[in-house]
């Protein structure tokens, strides 16, 4: 009995140790209200007006099937994450297509990335908070957006 327990505990530790990047985002995510945002879902800073992101969020939130949305933008890039209402989740693919089209039409000179993933939603919200607080440079935001875009494209 004892031997078995010890064996299991060791395996558990090995598994946990092998997992990716343990506890990096832990801090930044804790204690925040994950879904309902207190602000209007966009970031404002002195040098980087997030007006494009603000507009995009407004447009997307106006849709019936969207529960919440959050966005960040630079001069060339726009990243928008949204949450679909539970009963509309069956049509998620179609909704994604519609939103992509809508945003590309609205912001033709921006590289638009959208995602319905909850993880992307958390991450985008986190990035938005950082922009608001730290006044990140355009280049840094671009880097972050690229990173999140790669994350959203992972499949397996």
């Amino acid at each position: 009995m004892m031997k078995q327990l010890i064996g299991i505990i060791i395996i558990g530790f090995v598994l946990l140790g092998c997992a990716r990047e343990p506890g990096v985002q832990k801090q930044s995510l804790q204690g925040e209200n994950m879904i309902s945002l207190s602000t209007d879902g966009t970031a404002r800073s002195h040098e980087e007006s997030q007006s494009v992101a603000e507009q995009a969020v407004k447009q997307v939130k106006a849709r019936n099937e969207i529960r919440d949305a959050v966005a960040v933008s630079t001069n060339r890039k726009l990243l928008l994450a949204y949450q679909v209402k539970q009963m509309d989740r069956f049509r998620m693919k179609q909704i994604a297509k519609d939103i992509q089209q809508q945003l590309e039409l609205l912001f033709p000179d921006h590289d638009v990335t959208i995602s319905s993933d909850l993880k992307l939603f958390w991450k985008t919200d986190e990035l938005r908070g950082k922009i608001e607080k730290d006044h990140m440079s355009e280049r840094k935001i671009n880097q972050q957006i690229n990173q999140l875009k790669r994350l959203s494209e992972e499949r397996t």
Binding site: A19, R20, E21, P22, G23, V24, Q25, K26, L29, D117, L118, K119, L120, W122, L151, S152, E154, R155, T156
Partner: peptide
Amino acid sequence: YMYFFDFTEQTAGNP
């Protein structure tokens, strides 16, 4: 897995 690690809804299925 999504909250503490870098998994998305798509990729969290395997772990």
